[in-house]
């Protein structure tokens, strides 16, 4: 099982927070020793999901966790909101599907950029997205 070495939480309420989340994920992924490409992938995935949290989830929080599993190091991001929830998760995970006239790449794109991606959503209660990447 992976262990959480340290963790931090940030608010994700507005578009300035999206920028702060990007910068924080960058700092943490550098500290965990990720390559530049993997840092970029994680920051991009975080940016997509943070924007979703603001636009669709009416704001929420993100927890950033530095992981260790034996000699492996990783990073876990948990985005949580108490928004309306996602009615059809399968549809939302599809490339090009959007309810807000965006490109519809946020969820499926973030999943491709990370190693692990889990989405739990309950109508009327909110959405939690957990994603992980391990250092190669």
């Amino acid at each position: 099982m992976d262990q959480v070495e340290r963790a931090d939480a940030l608010p994700v309420r507005g578009e300035i927070d999206v920028v702060l989340v990007r910068q924080t994920v960058r700092t943490w992924s550098v500290q965990q020793g990720f390559t530049l490409v993997d840092q970029t992938k994680m920051v991009t995935a975080a940016s997509e999901i943070a924007r979703n949290t603001v636009l669709y989830g009416r704001g929420g929080t993100v927890r950033i966790e530095a992981l260790v599993e034996g000699v492996r190091k990783g990073l876990r991001l948990v985005f949580e909101d108490q928004g309306p929830g996602i009615p059809d998760v399968d549809l939302a995970m599809r490339d090009g599907y959007s309810t807000k006239n965006s490109l519809g790449l946020g969820l499926p794109g973030a999943r491709r950029l990370m190693d692990d991606f889990a989405l739990a959503s309950e109508l009327g209660h909110g959405t939690t997205i957990t994603m992980k990447k391990w250092k190669r």
């Binding site: 970029t40 490109l103 950029l113």
Partner: peptide, 12 residues
């Protein structure tokens, strides 16, 4: 380059 790699994987 890292941005280009990420962009394509994102689907853009």
């Amino acid at each position: 380059p890292a941005v280009a790699i990420t962009l394509v994987e994102l689907g853009l």
